[in-house]
Amino acid sequence: MLRYLGFRVLQLIPIMILASIGVFLMIHLVPGDPVLTVTGLEASAEQMARVRHEMGFDQSLPVQYFDWIGRVLTGDLGNSLVSQKPTTELIVDRMPATIQLTIATMFIGLVLGIPFGLISASRKGSWIDKMVAGYSSFSLAVPTFVVGIVFILIFGVELEWLPTASEYIPFWDDPGGALKATIGPAFTLGFYVSGVIARFVRASMVEVLGLDYIRTARAKGVGEAKLVYKHAFRAASLPTLTVVGIQFGTFLGGSLVTESVFNYPGVGRLILKAILNRDFVVVQGAVLVVVAIFTLVNLVTDVLYSFLNPRIRAGNGG
C-alpha cells in the first residue's frame, strides 16, 4: 500500500513538469506582445524596451522558464498585468466560491444520479430504465449554458424567485442567501453530473447484479431490495467513486462557461477574464494551479479507490 502511494506521488512530478512547460510555451507563443498589455498601444519604443527588460522578456525562453518555475515553487505566480495584484492572491480569493459551488454541484449530482442509476439497474429493460437512459442522454447532450439560460428564464425572469446574476455568499455567513445565490450554477452543473453518475451507477450495478455471489444470495432468499441496496450497491459504489472524483477535480478548477452564464465569481471567471484581457501572467499561473488541483484530486481518488478495494488492499498494491 505504502509503496503504491509512493509510486503514485512520484508520478506527479513528471506530469507537473510537462504541464508547466506546456502552459509556459503555450502562453509565450501567443502572437502579439504581452508588453503592450502593460504599456498600452501608444507606448514609445524606449518605454516598451524598459518594461520588456523589467519583466524579463528580453531573456531567452529557457532562462525565463526557470526563472518563472523557481518563483512558482516559492508560491509566487507573478503579478497580474492588469490589476498588478499577485496572481496567488487572486486565485486564493476566488477559491472559496468555486469550492462552495463544487460541493453544491456534487451534492445535487449524487442525490439525483445515484437513485436514478439504482432504480434503472434493478428494473433493467423496463420503461423506468428507458426513462432514466433518456434522462442521462439528455443531461449529457444539453450544453450547460442552455440549462443555465433556461434556469434563469424560469426562476429569474418569469417567476422572479432568484436573482438573474448570482454572487458568492459564504454558506456559514448566510445559509439562505448562499442557497439562493449558488443554486442556479449548482443545479446547472449538477444536472449534468447526475446524468454521468446515473449512467455509471447503472452500468456497474448491472455488472455486479450478474455476478455469482448475487445469484447465490438471491437463491438463498435475500429480498430483492436488500440485494440491490446492500449487497450489490456496496460493490458497485467503488467504480462510481472514480467518476465522482474526476468530476470533483474538474469543477474545483472552476467552470468557465457556467460561472460566466451566472456571473458567478469563481476561478473559472478569473481565468476567462484574464484570457479576454490578455493578462497572460494570471492565465499561466491559474491554468497551472487548475492542472495541479485536477491531477491531485485524481491521485487522491485513485489512492482512495485502492484503499477501499479489498482486492487491491490485500494484494501487492497495483
Partner: peptide, 24 residues
C-alpha cells in the same frame, strides 16, 4: 502516449479555451 497523457491532464474546455485564446 506520454504526450497524449499530457493533453488529457488538462481539463478539455480549459485547454480549448487557452488554445483559442493563443491563436486569436
Amino acid at each position: 502516449m506520454r504526450f497524449m497523457d499530457f493533453l488529457l491532464a488538462v481539463p478539455g474546455i480549459l485547454l480549448a479555451i487557452t488554445i483559442a485564446a493563443v491563436l486569436g
